[in-house]
Design a binder for these strands. Structure first.
Lengths: 290, 290
DNA sequence: CAAATAGTGTCTATTAGACAATATATA
DNA sequence: TATATATTGTCTAATAGACACTATTTG
C-alpha cells in the first residue's frame, strides 16, 4: 500500500476500531467585582445527574468540527455574552474515573474579564448561574523525608460563596509536592471523604487555575485583563494583593508597574481624601524594548 | 428521572450519539549527550502514510482505560526502555485539520532524561528511531503597530540533525506575538509553503517545548533531569548555556546553583588542567526553607 | 614553567524592602 | 483644621553583572 490516497481511504473505514473518549472544555472564568475588590468565578448549577444541583464550571463538549479554543469561545459567548475574551489553556485532565458517565477528557481553560463587560445570561440553558467569591484556607501541612525522597502535603479547603443566592460550594483538596531525586511533581487530588459540593473534579481545576493565576500575575500583564478600561493604581494594587494573597508596598508596586500603564489625566474622587488618577494599560509594554 | 442509577443506565445507551475525536500523546524527549554537550531529542521514522518516511515525535493513541500520563509512561518505556521518566504536560493541540486521517487531538508532553540511562529500542515497532540535535535559527523578524494593536512576527528555521544516520529534518515556523489591548497571545504556526520534513504539526510542538524548557530552566530544577547522577559544575553550566542559548558568568552561575548541589568530594581529571569536582543534586533544595 | 581550565574574590550597578514625607481631597 | 488616602522620596539590604585573581593539573 504505497499510495497515500488509497491508504487514507482504507483508514477511513477502520477509524472507529478503537474506543474514543469524549472531550469537554471546563472553563474557569475569573473576574473582579470592583466595588469591594474580590476575586470571583463563574459557576453553573447542574440540573441533571450526575452531581444534580451541585455547582460546576461552565463548559461543554467539543464539537467534532471545532478546535478547543473555538469551543471555549463559543461556550463563553453563550454563558457570559462576551465575545473575544482572554482565555488560556491550563491542563488536560484525563483520570479514567473522573466522570461517572463515561470516559471524558477535560481540557481546562482559564478566562479573565473585567466585570463591567459581561452580562450573565442565567437560565439560557435552563441552568442557574452565578459569580462566587474565592477563598482558600490551609487546613494542615505535613512533611515527610527519607534519604532520597521528600514530600510536602497540604490540605486546602476551597470555599466559593455567592451571597446574593446565599449558597456556598466547598471542597477539600490535597496538594502534594514530591521530590524523588531530581524528579519533582506537584499533584492535586480531591479528599474524597470530605463534604464536596463542587461537581466532578472541578475543585481541582479551580485550585490549579488559582496557582496559575498567582504565578503569572508576577511576571506577565495578565492581571490587566481583569481591569476595566480605566482604573486607579490603588485599585490595581488591590487586585494584585488579592490574587497574591499578601499586601504589597505602595512605592515598590508603583515602580514595578510604572511602564505598564499610562496616566489619562482624569481623576476619581472617592471620599474625604486626595483623589486618585485614572490610568489605562500601556499596550506597548509587551515587548519590552520596542 | 430523579434516580442517579437510572440516569446513568440510560446515559450509557446514548453515549455515542456525538462523534468523538481520537486522542494521542506526542512526546518531546530531551536528553544531553555528555561528550560534546548538545541538546538532543528523540524522533521516530514513520513507515506508513501519512508522512511516510518523515520523522515524527514518539507517542501513540491513548487507551480507553488509561490516563494520558499512563499512556506517556507506557510509550516511553516502549521506545526508550526507561521507566519512571520525568515528564510534564505541555499543551493539547486541537486544530481540526492537524491530521489528514481523522480528527485527532494531541496531548503533548515534554520528557527529560540523562543519556546514560536509556537504551534506544530501535525497530521495536518496525520503525527506525534516533537522537537528533536541535538547532533554531531566526530567519526574519517583523513588527507591526497600530493604535490599539501590536504584533511581532518571527520566522524560525528548526533543524534537527542526526549525524550517524546522516539525516536532517527541517521545518519553518512562524511565531506571532500579538497584543490587542490587554489581550496578549502567542501562537506558533507552520509555514506551509516551506520544505517541512517533520511529520504533522510536530515541529510546532518541538518549538513549543523548547520555549518551555528555556523558560523553566531559569527558575526550576528541571535541568537536573538531564544530568547524570554525578556531574561537574562546568558541565552543568554548559547545559544551562546550551538551553538558554547564551553564555553565563561562571561566578554568578555557581552562586546561583550553590544550594541546589552537593559536592561529593570526588574529582574528574579531564586534561592538562586543574581537575573539577563532582557534584550531585541536592534534593532537599526543592522546598527552599526546609 | 607554560598552558589550560577550575574555582574564588570583589567592585559596581541595579533592584527590592521598608518606611517616611508630602499632597490634596472632604467634613 | 483633622482625617484619610494618594503620591513621591530616600535610606538600606540584597542581588546581578562584570571582571580579575588564585588554584591545580599535564606536558
Amino acid at each position: 500500500m504505497d499510495n497515500e490516497q488509497q491508504f487514507l481511504a482504507q483508514y477511513q473505514k477502520e477509524k472507529d476500531r478503537y474506543e474514543k473518549p469524549s472531550v469537554t472544555t471546563d472553563i474557569v472564568v475569573f473576574t473582579v467585582s470592583q466595588e469591594r475588590p474580590a476575586l470571583e468565578l463563574l459557576l453553573i448549577q447542574r440540573k441533571h445527574h450526575p452531581y444534580k444541583d451541585c455547582w460546576a464550571l461552565p463548559g461543554g463538549f467539543m464539537d467534532i468540527d471545532e478546535s478547543l479554543e473555538q469551543a471555549v469561545q463559543r461556550e463563553l459567548a453563550e454563558e457570559t455574552g462576551i465575545t473575544n475574551i482572554y482565555a488560556e489553556q491550563l491542563y488536560t485532565w484525563s483520570d479514567v474515573a473522573r466522570d461517572p458517565r463515561m470516559r471524558i477528557l477535560s481540557a481546562s481553560y482559564m478566562a479573565l474579564t473585567p466585570k463591567d463587560k459581561l452580562q450573565l445570561k442565567a437560565g439560557d440553558d435552563a441552568r442557574d448561574a452565578g459569580w462566587f467569591t474565592v477563598k482558600t484556607e490551609s487546613l494542615l501541612k505535613e512533611y515527610k523525608e527519607t534519604k532520597e525522597m521528600l514530600e510536602e502535603t497540604e490540605e486546602i479547603l476551597l470555599t466559593l460563596t455567592n451571597t446574593q443566592k446565599d449558597v456556598q460550594a466547598k471542597a477539600t483538596l490535597r496538594v502534594r509536592k514530591q521530590a524523588y531525586g531530581t524528579k519533582t511533581s506537584e499533584t492535586i487530588e480531591m479528599v474524597e471523604d470530605a463534604v464536596n459540593t463542587i461537581a466532578f473534579d472541578h475543585a481541582k481545576i479551580i485550585l490549579y487555575s488559582l496557582y496559575r493565576l498567582r504565578n503569572k500575575v508576577e511576571y506577565t500583564n495578565i492581571a490587566f485583563n481583569l481591569m476595566p478600561e480605566k482604573f486607579t493604581l490603588p485599585r490595581l494594587q488591590a487586585v494584585y494583593e488579592m490574587i497574591l494573597g499578601k499586601s504589597l508596598f505602595k512605592a515598590q508596586f508603583r515602580r514595578h508597574i510604572a511602564d505598564k500603564v499610562i496616566a489619562t489625566g482624569e481623576e476619581v474622587k472617592e471620599g474625604a481624601h486626595r483623589p486618585s488618577q485614572l490610568y489605562r494599560y500601556n499596550h506597548r509594554w509587551v515587548f519590552g524594548s520596542l
